[in-house]
Design a protein around this nucleic acid. Structure first.
Lengths: 137, 137
DNA sequence: GTTAATAATGCACTTCTGTTGCATCCCTTT
DNA sequence: AAAGGGATGCAACAGAAGTGCATTATTAAC
């Protein structure tokens, strides 16, 4: 099994204590988190560091950004073999309007969307809003 | 043909000079606009007024809000018979990563999306990103 | 192992969007 | 003409996002 250190190194990310902690935090969460979620979890650390760490993770394709319509950007770890940097095979996200949580529905692929003549589709963002399984039960 | 005054009145919106101007501005635009777009077009008017005018239009269902993933909320006039307030018949939006413009593809309906057991879908936001017809030509 | 270079972190500050409270103005109705 | 209610304008605030620079830590070179 691959350690987190190995994973980061394989993605050209220098390993630091901070980055390991942030990675672990993201791995423990099953839902997408905002920057302030991370901020609250690491009150000792500076906001800028957290911000730039996430940006680094994003550039190196180990987290992907989610825009769930709340106006606040959320982030989640890419799955093993996540192809969020590839344009065609995107999963969708579910935003619960009750608890506010956003989860990746990695099993549910986005159907092919037709666009009019002249338009070139490169990426699709699909967010379903409603009530999640925890809140509907 | 219905005048703008009649339209506003039919939606319980009091007609003012400002509101007529903002409505006309939205009608002329073929793309979704941000609040600062409107701000730039009406430099004499106060930001708050424009903000609240749009909010009023939104409440009364003559504009709909678009979240195209840029992080900035955009607005567009609802089409004749627009059902954006109804949960099922939503059109999709196209965001051009070249010119930054976002257009409503009102003819293109969103396919039914399956969600896992326990999840209740109430609303779907679908934004296709890529190159628009003007930029690809 | 010390030093030089490079990257990471922390602090301060700025910008932008969105929002609210309050005073004032304008229009409508009586 | 006066009163009431909504519209407008001003000020101010909150939160997210982002940048510049100094400082610290890590790696690489000698």
């Amino acid at each position: 099994m691959e350690t987190i250190e190995q994973l980061l190194e394989s993605k050209d990310i220098r390993v630091t204590a901070m980055r390991l902690l942030i990675y672990k935090f993201l791995a423990e969460k099953e839902v997408a988190v905002t920057l302030s979620d991370i901020e609250n979890a690491f009150e000792k650390a500076d906001r800028t560091t957290l911000y730039r760490t996430i940006k680094t993770f994003e550039e190196k394709d180990i987290v992907h950004q989610i825009d769930d319509g709340t106006g606040i950007t959320k982030y989640a770890l890419c799955e093993q073999g996540c192809s969020c940097n590839i344009k065609t095979d995107l999963h969708l996200h579910f935003h619960c309007t009750n608890c506010g949580e956003t989860v990746c529905l990695t099993d549910h692929k986005i159907p092919q969307i037709k666009v009019p003549e002249g338009f070139i589709s490169e990426n699709v963002n699909l967010v379903v809003k409603g009530i999640c399984d925890k809140c509907s039960g």
